[in-house]
């Protein structure tokens, strides 16, 4: 961070970063641009970011009226919020135990968590589907939430963070009369806020954007999460209705971008594990 390059180095570095930025940002710009255009301009061969005839009002109105977009957003909030809360409930005690308690089999358990980290979400999809079918939970919120309650990533991230908390703090707490759950709740948690926030952003973004799993387990339109909801734009009529579709995706993406911007500073603290100071 403190190293200063030459001017040329600066220019080069920024050029590379700018190129990356353009590649990352272009689809979003295109999405917003399309959401403002009437159908004939969307398919025009002329390349232009801003429309000649503004159709923003119609597109956004359609997005909210043709499909129950607010309902999808609400579903998204329920599902991602539910997943994150339950993930915390499971991974915080697990992470604390793996980081700070001494017991037989701890290393094996941690290895299993690491292995769990490497399994792609799609791999156990079919067994999960069958299990949910057997207990009759398909096509419910539970089907969207329960499979993700155990998060190997959450356990791993929080465990790494808890390890940086000095042991003496726990020892002092035990002498002060705190039980293990109280140590977790009163001592460890308040210091782990940056890591929890980082985990929160990652978890919420992942599950908000998840298309694959909701597509498999949800049939009822009313239970659709936002990305699944975009499907219904396409099936609406014969052709795809790109203006409202893009307007819808803008509305769906916006909360995530706002969430990240709000949490940005502490998020970076959390992933770099630099949250502990003196």
């Amino acid at each position: 961070m403190t190293r200063r390059g030459t001017l040329l180095g600066h220019v080069l570095r920024h050029a590379v970063l700018l190129a990356g930025l353009v590649i990352m940002l272009a689809p979003f710009v295109w999405m917003v641009s399309t959401s403002l255009k009437p159908p004939n301009e969307i398919f025009s061969t002329k390349l232009s970011l801003l429309p000649t005839n503004w159709a923003a009002a119609e597109n956004y109105r359609d997005a909210f009226t043709k499909v129950p977009l607010l309902r999808y957003l609400l579903n998204g909030v329920i599902v991602t919020g539910g997943i994150f809360l339950l993930q915390l409930l499971v991974s915080l005690p697990c992470a604390y135990a793996l980081a700070k308690l001494r017991f037989k089999g701890r290393d094996i358990l941690f290895t299993m968590v690491l292995i769990g980290l490497m399994i792609p979400a799609q791999a156990p999809a079919i067994p999960r589907y069958v299990m949910l079918y057997q207990i009759g939970l398909l096509d419910t919120y539970a089907a969207l939430i329960l499979p993700f309650v155990f998060s190997a990533f959450g356990i791993f991230l929080m465990r790494q963070f808890f390890r940086t908390v000095p042991d003496d703090l726990m020892h002092a707490a035990r002498l002060d009369g705190l039980g293990e759950f109280e140590i977790l709740w009163r001592i460890m948690l308040p210091q782990a806020m940056p890591a929890m926030l980082a985990f929160g952003v990652i978890s919420i973004v992942t599950h908000w954007n998840d298309f694959f799993w909701p597509l498999i387990v949800i049939q009822t339109g009313d239970l659709a999460t936002p990305p699944l909801g975009t499907l219904f734009f396409r099936n609406e009529e014969a052709g795809s209705d790109f203006g409202p579709l893009m307007a819808g995706t803008v509305v769906i993406t916006a909360p995530l971008i706002l969430l990240f911007l709000a949490a940005q500073r502490r998020f970076i603290e959390g992933v770099t594990l630099s949250g502990m100071k003196g």
Binding site: D168, D176, L178, I187
Partner: peptide, 28 residues
Amino acid sequence: ARDRDIAMVFQSYALYPHMTVAENIGLP
């Protein structure tokens, strides 16, 4: 530890960083 009625002062002091001095002293 908590049932032994013993207090300890650590080399690192082990103060709870997120609590005020009053809360630190008052916790036990």
